[in-house]
Amino acid sequence: MAQYPSMQQTGSRAEVVNAFMRGVYGWMSAGLGLTALVAFAVTQSQTLMQMFFVVDPATGAVGMSTLVFILLFAELGIVFYLGAKIRTMAPATATALFMLYSGLNGLTLTPILLAYTAESVASTFVITAGMFGTMSIYGLVTKKDLTSWGSLLFMGLIGIVIAMVVNMFLQSSAMAFAISVIGVIIFLGLTAYDTQKLKTMGETVPMNDSAAIRRGTILGALTLYLDFINLFLMLLRLLGNRE
């Protein structure tokens, strides 16, 4: 005879999923908060600006230093390392690496944020939060299986990266606009897709394994953090007012 889960077991699983997703959003928010705090601290400190960036005294333009390029590669290394090793590393290590990445990202994003007015950065952040929240809720509640979106969105993401590299040489404003519009669509889709994938992860994570749950929440936080940041940057290119 088939065995069915009791109401108590079903309720416990639902509680685990809810706690898992709260952990994902909580750590993602902590990462975003640290990114914003570091970016603000750097912009307010002449010493830090001179330490990490090349500032033109005549125009005030901010350029990347060799150290910042090194930090950018370090960020990529952290993301790939977390993705590859998170299932075996200690939860505290995974958490520390995620927060380290978030802090470094706040530093390396500083020149981009300085290129726009503070008002447009703030308003774009609010718009990003609203769009991200809407698509993430859709990913949580929809009954539609979004698995088929994965390969299409990944191919679109690769195409965007290639187009951005090409436009570094072409410097086409029309192409930059198209990249930003398509980028917004892709990262909105990824937000819904990744959220549903994380919900499924929460439904299958071992209920009594706190280490596995923490590692899963950190991986989920990193995934949604990247969706949010990239969506924000694409919208900033579209909506931001330059200094």
Rank of each mutant, 00 (worst) to 15 (best):
A2V: 09
Y4K: 00
Y4L: 07
P5A: 10
P5T: 13
S6L: 07
M7N: 08
Q8Y: 03
Q9L: 14
R13M: 13
V17Y: 08
A19M: 00
F20D: 01
G23D: 12
Y25I: 09
G26N: 09
M28L: 09
G31Y: 01
G31W: 01
L34H: 08
A36M: 02
A36Y: 09
V38T: 11
D56N: 15
P57C: 05
T59Q: 13
V62S: 09
G63F: 07
S65D: 07
T66H: 10
V68Q: 04
L72C: 02
A74Q: 00
A74L: 12
E75L: 12
G77V: 06
I78Q: 04
V79K: 12
V79D: 11
V79E: 08
Y81V: 03
Y81R: 06
A84P: 00
A84Q: 05
A84L: 08
K85F: 14
K85G: 10
R87L: 03
T88G: 01
T88R: 15
A90L: 14
A92D: 06
T93Y: 05
T95R: 08
A96T: 04
A96M: 14
L97Y: 01
M99L: 15
Y101W: 15
S102Y: 05
G103D: 01
L104E: 10
G106V: 05
T108R: 07
T110I: 12
I112T: 13
L113A: 06
A118V: 12
V121Q: 02
A122V: 04
T124Q: 02
I127G: 02
I127C: 05
T128E: 09
T128Y: 06
T128R: 08
G130R: 15
M131C: 08
G133T: 15
T134V: 15
Y138D: 07
L140S: 07
T142M: 09
T142I: 14
T142Q: 09
K143D: 14
D145V: 08
D145Q: 05
L146I: 14
T147D: 07
W149A: 06
W149K: 02
G150D: 12
L152D: 01
L153M: 09
I160N: 11
M164K: 06
M164E: 04
N167W: 06
F169P: 01
L170S: 08
Q171M: 11
S173Q: 05
M175G: 03
A176R: 02
A176T: 08
F177Q: 02
I179A: 02
I179Y: 05
I179Q: 04
S180A: 15
V181H: 13
V181D: 11
I182H: 11
L188Y: 08
L190K: 12
A192Q: 09
Y193S: 03
Y193N: 03
Y193E: 03
K197T: 10
K197A: 12
T200Q: 13
T204L: 11
M207G: 07
N208E: 15
S210D: 15
A212W: 13
I213C: 00
R214H: 11
R214A: 13
R214L: 09
R215G: 06
I218T: 01
A221T: 10
A221V: 14
T223P: 10
Y225F: 15
L226P: 00
F228S: 03
F228E: 05
N230E: 06
N230L: 14
F232W: 13
L233W: 02
L236F: 04
R237S: 04
L238Q: 02
N241W: 01
E243Y: 04
